[in-house]
Design a protein around this nucleic acid. Structure first.
Lengths: 186, 186
DNA sequence: CGAGTGATGGCACGGTGTGCCATTGCGATG
DNA sequence: CATCGCAATGGCACACCGTGCCATCACTCG
């Protein structure tokens, strides 16, 4: 099966996360990441469009999952509640999988450039939610607003869950954030 | 008063906006912007940290104004309402001033990189609102959530106002977005 | 007139991201 | 087995970015 050492992309991600942790994002070179992964600089840019993307692999699949979850949520739910339900289930799955979440977050928090990219990924999730809402027949303007609110909750909950260092369940963070939203708006 | 041609930064902004409109952000070089402004490339990077920043000058002052407006809003208002009131007044002042808003928005919408930067500027506004809320004694976690909601409204209203092409008042867009928020959450 | 000062220009450097082509290793086909 | 095809990889060159450093310019002040 494997012609060369397998899982090149995975190795690059691992190497990048390590180096970013050791020296900070800006002080790390694409060549260095590639070298640690046993690959050439040119190969790095085949797998990832730039130095930031290497930390956000798989976010496209997350967006797709969210879109589907929104579209297929209980038809009786309001647009916002459909998004919130979808966000909770998708986020819960994500929370199981990622043991690197805290280290990733640590790296991102130390770099404005990476924060910028993370916001783009959140925007991508918003777009996915909008798309899911469209499949429910929600009109575009309203969908945009609703999706933004839902992703705000999602992001808030995720951040708090990571800060909780495994002592709190993601779903609890999520519901707490939802309650706070409703209280703040009321 | 003026040693060289005055208002170098202003000239650079004008040249950049023109070129970005003509050829798109990515196809324009810092050297070209500087040349059109009658300056050297090196000078461009003295005024603006990178090619994106040239479109976002003055956003720092906006953030400061917002922070102050939040802090000095009617003490009887809830945190969210204080932010919303502050956002409306600051946004209204901004709406008067900027005739380039539509062209700027057109350029930004055509470039993912610029959208990324715009999100950073919105985040900066959020931080400013959080700071204003802190001066009101709102605790940090709640302030973050409330500020994000307020900036979401602000951004939505601004986008719709620009799309309205001068036919609608900013305040109307703002209030409409606020009503939709409350309806969506309820 | 000369010293001081702040804006500007020029230069060089390391890094980024990309197009292009050569090389490598493996499976499939005869 | 020979050889073709193919996809991953590597190497090279290039334009551009952003920055440190220093020289130059134009104006002010003593």
């Amino acid at each position: 099966m494997a012609r060369w050492e397998p899982r090149a992309a995975e190795r690059l991600q691992k190497a990048a996360l390590e180096l970013y942790l050791e020296r900070g994002f800006e002080a790390v070179t694409a060549s260095e990441i590639a070298a640690r992964a046993g690959l050439a600089r040119r190969t790095f840019f085949r797998y990832f469009a730039d130095k930031r993307e290497v930390l956000f692999a798989g976010s496209g699949q997350l967006a797709e999952a969210l879109s589907d979850a929104v579209a297929s949520a209980d038809p009786a739910l309001s647009p916002l509640n459909a998004c919130l339900a979808a966000g909770e289930s998708v986020g819960a799955r994500l929370a199981e999988w990622s043991a690197d979440a805290a280290r990733r977050r640590q790296v991102i928090e130390a770099s404005p450039e990476l924060q910028e990219r993370e916001r783009s990924k959140m925007a991508q999730l918003t777009t996915a939610a909008v798309e899911g809402l469209a499949r429910r027949g929600v009109d575009a303007e309203r969908a945009q607003l609703v999706a933004e609110i839902a992703i705000l909750i999602f992001h808030t909950a995720f951040a708090r869950w990571i800060d909780g260092a495994g002592k709190v369940a993601f779903e609890d963070c999520y519901r707490e954030a939802t309650v706070e939203l409703r209280a703040a708006v009321a």
